[in-house]
Design a protein around this nucleic acid. Structure first.
Lengths: 336, 336
DNA sequence: CTGAAAGCGCTTACAG
DNA sequence: CTGAAAGCGCTTACAG
């Protein structure tokens, strides 16, 4: 049914080597033969099979993005940046979604690396422990980390501690004192760092810090980085700390839920999110901006450079996040 | 560097056939040999290479989702449904993002099919013309269409005409008359259908229909299915038709922009979006719900069934969308 | 339960 | 500019 290089070669009266050359932009094929081969190929819908090409040439021209949960706006933006860069460089993108949790999670990550279905890997928000990173290090593949860093790997990340610190400090500077933090799964690495930054601001301010002001809601789904996660957390916050006078929230998606909860509870306090996803500008959400598209593009470039030069120096890029103030913190200066 | 089946076989003192059997859950391997092979493989990080397996066995166990623009909430939800189903069935998902426009678009679609990097394809919102569909039909691959249908292909879609009709009729029933439609790129198939439904409601109501009430904004990016597309369209609407008394909007993402524009313009009229993406519930946006996750799951099942049985009857599933009323149409009954 | 061997569909020196 | 041939890393009847 599906034709192979042999069928084309036979029909064109040439060798398979020649057919192969036509498809590999090799110049050493006469214009006439090239046209004949192309014409026949077009007629039967022939094109070299990716897998066979990969096997024979040892290059696939595809890189693989490994993400933990597909449906997250943060990843989507990053993937957009990756895609743009890749298209521009003639590579193809394959996306692998790690669905497991715990040990299974690592097994899946390791498995995808071992299958060697791509020449380079972009890990987006894949957080592992030291043992696991070390284990990965031994595989002869190029990997660039996004939103994470570990010694020995190229990486592009944002300083989460600083981002949370800046947001919290801004609130403190404005005179707020009982600043709550709407958090997500606390074992998640970005959350840990954001909590660290949040604490840091308090310490620096000389305020005694109340760990109970950090609250997370439903973390079952996507580690709590959901509208629902934010909504339930804010409700809880209101029960436990009705006096809370401002909030820092660990992601914009959650902040959408927080805003809704505030509305339902009829309370109105300043709120700062994290990420600056597309809609934030439109719903007037203040936030800590992560340059997601840029991160994707830079990481892609880094990976490609690494693939070309195994021995180049490790590159660890760390962005400083930017605080963007919008309507959700409109009253912020009035109180001080 | 990277080890192959030969290295493992040599180290284990068995043939490559045996190593292969170990990795293919074949039962005919003694427990002892199996363990030895597994242990050595583990030590050197060996795992059969996907491409070589694919070539030799002629099955990849991967299906490919083909999408036009990655960063769109609609696709994300559908991909979520696909992913869940696939994981559950032990298949792997690869995603191909078609980035071209016009003829290049079709070339890319055709190219990805011809490369045969997957055993089945899920086309999400890929809209082609009759010639192009016919051309695709000749390839010996399984394809299931999502958000589109064409004779001869399995498909899962939603009745866009009906969705738009229902939304518009609801507004008309409530007594509104100058109902605007915030549209996107008009050559886009879903837009065409939604405009058709919008018109239909007017006709049925015996109202003369004003084509100028259909307005689109910036359609350069993602065909206008963006917050910005909605924002600019609403601004334009306000200039051209300041008397507009309600709006039907072709997607929720755009509606987020419309809401913001209304706020900036200080006008407040009922608004109904389309899709029911995750945040809609939280921002109180009335909308026409498309069961995106379900569509992804059903389409996946359909595709897998097709792959198992080439000659089964074509399945064309068409969902009826559901209207969901929220805050953005709160005043809807007062006017009538 | 295990091995030798053919074959999957390509690419790529090597010759000419 | 073109072809014969080896090889990429696997799987899978076929024998035993």
């Amino acid at each position: 049914m599906a034709s192979t290089i042999y069928d084309i070669a036979a029909k064109a009266g040439v060798s398979i080597a020649t057919v192969s050359r036509v498809f590999n932009q090799s110049t050493s094929v006469s214009q006439k033969t090239r046209e004949k081969v192309l014409k026949i190929s077009e007629a039967v819908g022939y094109h070299p099979q990716a897998y066979a090409q990969g096997l024979a040439s040892k290059k696939l021209n595809t890189i693989m993005a490994v993400v933990p949960v597909m449906s997250n706006y943060f990843f989507i933006e990053i993937l957009g940046g990756i895609q743009d860069k890749l298209t521009q460089l003639g590579y193809e993108l394959s996306i692998f979604n790690v669905t497991g949790t715990g040990d299974v999670f690592f097994d899946q990550v390791e498995h995808v690396i071992r299958r060697r279905a791509a020449e380079g890997y972009l890990f987006i928000s894949i957080h592992l422990n030291a043992d696991q990173w070390d284990k990965l290090q031994k595989y002869p593949v190029s990997i660039t980390l996004i939103d994470e860093f570990y010694e020995g790997f190229d990486s592009v990340s944002v300083d989460n501690v600083q981002g949370a610190y800046t947001a919290t400090k801004t609130l403190l500077d404005a005179g707020y004192e009982k600043i709550g933090m709407i958090s997500a799964l606390e074992s998640s690495k970005p959350i840990k760092d954001r909590i660290k930054g949040y604490k840091l601001a308090f310490e620096e301010f000389g305020f005694s810090f109340d760990p109970n002001l950090i609250i997370s809601g439903d973390t079952n789904y996507r580690d709590g980085f959901t509208e629902r996660g934010g909504y339930t957390a804010m409700q809880l916050m209101n029960e436990v700390h009705p006096k809370v006078d401002a909030c820092f929230c660990s992601s914009d998606v959650q902040a959408v839920g927080v805003l809704k909860a505030m509305e339902d509870l009829e309370i109105s306090i300043p709120l700062i999110g994290y990420d600056d996803i597309e809609i934030s500008e439109y719903i007037g959400l203040s936030t800590v901006r992560q340059p997601m598209r840029d991160m994707g593009a830079i990481a892609t470039q880094t990976l490609l450079d690494r693939m070309k030069n195994e021995s180049k120096a490790i590159s660890q890029i760390i962005y400083s996040p930017e605080l963007i103030l919008r309507k959700s913190t409109n009253g912020i200066l009035k109180k001080s």
